[in-house]
Each structure stands twice: as structure tokens, then as C-alpha cells.
């Protein structure tokens, strides 16, 4: 059981991807999946990583997502065993579910995002993802991706053991990239990680830009945790 949501934020232009699976380390698909000011793709099934760079290169040279998808399929003898979604910098989407997959595997194309749902994913889970993501357009993309995963959690036949969210803004590296590779309740663990990470994210950025003014991380953490009950390190 694996599902993924690939999206572009209509307000900011950020590109993002959320994924969850009963397999381990599903977030390993993030490498080279997204590219700033270009778009991105996700491939489920087999060893999908090789599609990532090719899809971004084709998007960068100007191919529309539908053409990129054609190229990925033409380049891959096993493409009928895979699911693929592609999004470009305009939010245009294309998706593919291979004919060799079970009938329960499906994808959904929506304005500015696509959902891939592998075998044993309930249609109600896909609906929950779509409803949540559509309803949260005012929030930041990374928060929307996480909320979508949380909305899907109740529809999972078995809890995902690994999950991740990644988003790219205008830098050539991710601005959010969080994973849980092995956990009994991976979506909840990703929420815990995300909430802990948020205040540090700003700190890490500021520390790198202005090292001379930065306080040590330990002091920052102590200040942060001092205001909380039951979570002191």
C-alpha cells in the first residue's frame, strides 16, 4: 500500500510531494524528484528513481507534463507496472497507472495536483486526500501536504510505516524535507517531527546567514523547551 500527492501551490509557485507506504524508507524517492521553477514527478513501483532526473530535465527544456509522461513510458519497458505523476511550473498535471497493476490502483488529476494510489488503497482514502488538499489552499504547501496525509490516516487499512513530505521554493535545494523511515504510526510521527522542526528551521537559516550573531543551538533549544511542560531535554 503506497500513495502519493504531487502538487504546486497556486499562491507561491512552490512544488511539493507527500508519500506514505507500508514499505520502509518510502521518502527515498525524494532525491531529484522536484526542481525549483521547473516542476517534478513521482514514480511508484520497482526502482522508480531513474525517472526523476529525466522528468525534470524534460520539463526544464519545455515539454508539457503529458509529453514528459509519454517519454517516461517510452523509455521504460516496465512502465505498465508503475504509476507516474508529473507536474510542471504552471501546475499542469499528467498521471499514469500501468495496465499490469491491480484494478484497485488508481490516480486522480485535480487542478494543480495529482494523487497516485497503489494496490489496496481504498477509494475513500483518495477522496480524503483530495478533499483535504483542496480545502487547505490558504495554508503553506508543506502544512497542506501533512494535513492531507493526516486526513488519509483514518482510511489506511494498515498504518503506513514510512512517510515523507518535501517542498521546493525558489532555491536549488529543498526548503522542507522531512521523513519517517520506520515507525508503527508514521503519519503521527511525521507530525511530531514537523512541529518540532518548525522553530528550528528558521533558526538554522538565520544561523547560517549571520553566524556572528547566532547563539549556540543548545541554548536555542533550551530556551525553546523551557517554555514547554513535559518536554525538556
Amino acid at each position: 500500500m503506497t500513495f502519493a500527492l504531487l502538487a504546486r501551490c497556486g499562491r507561491t509557485g512552490r512544488i511539493g510531494l507527500a508519500i506514505a507506504s507500508e514499505d520502509l524508507c518510502t521518502g527515498a524517492v525524494f532525491a531529484h524528484a522536484l526542481r525549483s521553477n521547473t516542476g517534478g514527478s513521482v514514480t511508484l513501483g520497482g526502482s522508480p528513481g531513474r525517472n526523476n532526473t529525466l522528468a525534470c530535465n524534460l520539463l526544464a527544456q519545455g515539454y508539457a507534463p503529458a509529453r514528459v509522461l509519454q517519454e517516461l513510458r517510452a523509455n521504460d519497458p516496465q512502465c505498465e507496472s508503475r504509476q507516474i505523476a508529473v507536474i510542471d511550473r504552471h501546475g499542469r498535471v499528467a498521471a499514469h497507472t500501468g495496465e499490469a497493476l491491480t484494478r484497485s490502483a488508481l490516480h486522480r488529476i485535480e487542478p494543480g495536483f495529482a494523487v497516485l494510489a497503489g494496490a489496496a488503497v481504498k477509494p475513500s482514502l483518495v477522496e480524503a486526500l483530495v478533499q483535504s488538499f483542496t480545502a487547505s489552499a490558504a495554508l503553506e504547501l508543506d502544512e497542506r501536504l501533512l494535513k492531507a496525509l493526516e486526513s488519509a490516516a483514518a482510511e489506511c487499512a494498515t498504518p503506513p510505516r514510512s512517510v515523507g513530505i518535501v517542498a521546493f521554493g525558489n532555491q536549488d535545494y529543498s526548503d522542507v524535507d522531512l521523513r519517517v523511515d520506520l515507525h508503527g504510526d508514521a503519519i503521527r510521527e511525521l507530525r511530531r517531527t514537523y512541529d518540532e522542526y518548525q522553530p528550528f528551521a528558521a533558526y538554522y537559516l538565520e544561523r547560517g546567514k549571520h553566524p556572528r550573531q547566532a547563539i549556540p543551538q543548545r541554548e536555542f533549544a533550551d530556551m525553546l523547551y523551557a517554555g514547554r511542560s513535559g518536554n525538556t531535554r
Binding site: C25, A31, S47, R50, D181, L182, R192, Y197
Partner: peptide
């Protein structure tokens, strides 16, 4: 040689992250 990592394992937040990395 391929662009996609052969292995990419992470522990993002854990009290004993190195032990957890071994577990993963």
C-alpha cells in the same frame, strides 16, 4: 553512477538516532 541514491536512510527526530538508524 546513477543519479538516484542507491541507499538513502534517515532518522529525522529520535532520542537515540544512531541506534535507530542501525535499526532502519
Amino acid at each position: 553512477r546513477g543519479e538516484h541514491p542507491l541507499l538513502d536512510l534517515r532518522v529525522d527526530l529520535h532520542d537515540r538516532a544512531v541506534s535507530q538508524l542501525r535499526r532502519v
